[in-house]
Amino acid sequence: MQDPDLAVEEIERRAADHRFVSILVLAQGETLLGRRHFWPVYRLAEKYKLPLAIHAGTQYRQAPSSAGWPSHRYEYYFVEAQAFQAQILSLIYEGVFGKFPNLKVVLMESGVSWLPAFMWRANKTWRGVRVEVPWVEREPAAIIRENFRVTMQPFDAPGDAKSVEDIIDQIGSEKMFLFASDYPHWQFDGDDPIPPNLPNSIISKMCVDNPLETFPRLSLAN
């Protein structure tokens, strides 16, 4: 994404090959992903049904969080979830989904349990400050539920089943969830990569239905 023109060239070159199913970018690049100079990439993403996959990772162009440079990897890993949140806001408020309403964005290795409170705060702030961005005509949570998908590893779950159920309920859209193992990385959740206490109702959706809906080229690849 350092050079959107070259990115566009590469997407065009690969678009006919259905073995490619998404466009992969980092959560922390040089600038936030909503910025207009990236829009040619999103135009093609929408056109070729390639979701934009944002994966944890950084180019270290700026501090991993507004607090500055952390001492430990552990802290870095913790604040990474915030970068995803900033990317969601950037994509929404710059107006990307008004321009490209069918664009899907997949958050990969972002954590999941922060979604409800993040959406509440986004809605609240939008209600009061939306005059700054009047092109965003729906509440951010509605856009998130429609245009964003999230991989379920790590989940950052509360310890008890009731709370996990509450989180799933608060997120409010079962079609957002995608199974992921993170294999072979060391953060890999082990032999049972399905987060504990997930309601049965979402497991088959997140393992089969949702991925096929999110990555339409999976069906085309055969």
């Binding site: 959560a27 040089e30 950084t58 700026q62 969080s65 604040v79 970068a83 900033a86 408020y93 400050v129």
Partner: peptide, 11 residues
């Protein structure tokens, strides 16, 4: 933000 400078106060 860890992704850079946002454009708007709402962010």
């Amino acid at each position: 933000t860890g992704g850079g400078w946002p454009s708007y106060y709402v962010e």
